[in-house]
């Protein structure tokens, strides 16, 4: 579903991400963890087609992100860590706008909006301007807008920040369901307990370089993911 081959992104002389390679199969929830400034957001943005990069190639569903960006974006959804939504729109206007861009039919969009807005308890706020929404409500709206076109690959940057426990639980359920239906999810998080329970595979990035990746059992073994992460972080500091 997603193949990242030797991806490198430099800002001047400094490599924000250096020679990163990852493969994500359909049906996988892939966690991406690392310290602040490790290169997680840079990687996600490059996959989402929001930046050019210096070396390597990225393929989504067999399409090149640089060569066929529109084809890639048709089957992808990207949820940034702090979604900047159109505050002058109401929630429902925003969802309809996104649905129009993806060409989602009236019946499908009505059904999905109803399903997800009820699930996230946002239905009664859809007629309100987004400017009146709390951060958590904006996050929920961004998630619903990402699901409205039934994407095959979902990219999420810190998706659980600002979500209440019920919404977090519901989001995890949805993520699992999407992957059981053949989709794939690639998301970054600082909440290692969530990654440990939810992810099929995980990649740990430090200072732009991939230091460990694989299935959850391969990466953490008998230890907790937190312990593994801290050990790897310590190794890097001592090196």
């Amino acid at each position: 579903m997603l193949r990242i081959d030797h991806f490198t992104k430099k800002y001047g002389e400094k490599a924000a991400v250096d020679d990163l390679s990852l493969h994500i199969q359909p049906g996988e929830i892939y966690g991406f963890i690392g310290h602040n400034g490790a290169g997680k957001t840079t990687t996600l943005k490059a996959v989402a087609g929001l930046m050019n990069f210096d070396e390597g190639e990225i393929f989504i569903g067999g399409h090149s992100v640089t060569g066929e960006p529109i084809e890639c974006k048709k089957i992808t959804a990207y949820i940034p860590d702090n979604p900047d939504l159109y505050e002058f729109m109401t929630g429902i206007q925003y969802l309809n706008f996104i649905a129009d861009i993806f060409g989602v039919g009236a019946d499908d969009r009505a059904e999905r909006i109803r399903e997800y807005s009820q699930l996230f308890d946002l239905e009664r706020n859809l007629a309100m301007p987004i400017t009146s929404y709390s951060h958590g409500m904006k996050q929920k709206l961004a998630v619903i807008s990402a699901l409205i076109h039934a994407p095959k690959l979902i990219l999420m940057d810190e998706p659980f920040v600002g979500l209440d426990p019920v919404a977090s639980h519901d989001l995890k359920q949805i993520m699992r369901k999407i992957c059981d239906d053949g989709g794939a999810i690639f998301f970054s998080t600082h909440v290692l307990e969530v990654a440990e329970k939810l992810c099929d595979k995980v990649a740990i990035i430090k200072n732009g370089r991939l230091i460990k990746s694989g299935t959850m059992d391969e990466v953490k073994g008998d230890e907790s993911l937190e312990d593994v992460f801290l050990e790897l972080a310590e190794e890097g500091n001592n090196a």
């Binding site: 940034p80 900047d84 939504l85």
Partner: peptide, 10 residues
């Protein structure tokens, strides 16, 4: 909104 719009198939 450039990031938001460029992530869409536009």
């Amino acid at each position: 909104d450039n990031d938001l719009l460029l992530a869409l198939p536009i």
